[in-house]
Computed example of a mutant assay.
Amino acid sequence: MKALTLAFALLLAAPALAEDAEIRNPLQPSPTWDDIRLSVIGTDDEPPLDAGVLLLDAPPRADNPAFVPVRITQPEGAPAITALALVIDQNPAPVAAEFTFGKALMPLDFEVRVRVDAYSDLRAIATLEDGRKVMAGRFVKASGGCAAPAGKSMDDVRKTMGEMRYRTAAGEGEDAGRDIGTLMIRHPNFSGLQRDQLTLLTIPAEFIQTLEVKQGDQPLFTMDAGISISEDPVFRFAYGAPEGAVTVHAQDTEGRVWDKSF
Rank of each mutant, 00 (worst) to 15 (best):
P149H: 03
P219N: 04
A148W: 09
D44Y: 12
Q218A: 13
D259I: 13
V140F: 10
S261N: 04
A250N: 01
R24T: 15
I41T: 11
M161W: 10
E98M: 10
F67H: 15
L193R: 03
V234C: 06
I125G: 01
F101T: 09
V234D: 02
P188Q: 01
E111L: 11
D175H: 08
N25Y: 01
D175S: 14
P242R: 07
E206H: 14
R71V: 15
M161P: 00
I185N: 08
V68C: 09
P59T: 03
A18C: 10
G240A: 14
G171L: 10
Q194E: 15
A93Q: 14
Y119I: 05
L200R: 15
A7G: 08
H187C: 09
R71S: 11
T199R: 01
V114A: 02
W33A: 07
L200Y: 15
E206S: 10
T43L: 08
N64H: 07
I208R: 07
A238R: 04
A18T: 14
L56Q: 00
G171W: 12
L6P: 02
R61M: 15
A225M: 10
P48T: 07
T5A: 15
D57V: 06
T100H: 11
M223N: 06
Q194F: 02
V234R: 00
Q209T: 10
R123E: 04
L201F: 13
G52R: 15
D109M: 04
G244Y: 04
W258G: 02
G144E: 07
P233L: 05
T82W: 00
A169V: 13
P26C: 07
N91M: 10
R132E: 10
A118R: 12
V157A: 11
K214A: 08
L56R: 01
R256T: 01
D155N: 13
P31D: 11
D109F: 10
G77Y: 00
V95T: 14
V70T: 05
N25T: 00
A3E: 08
Y166V: 11
N64E: 02
G244K: 04
P233V: 08
M154Q: 13
F101V: 00
T253L: 12
A118I: 06
Q28S: 11
Y166S: 07
R165Q: 12
L211S: 09
A7V: 09
D259R: 15
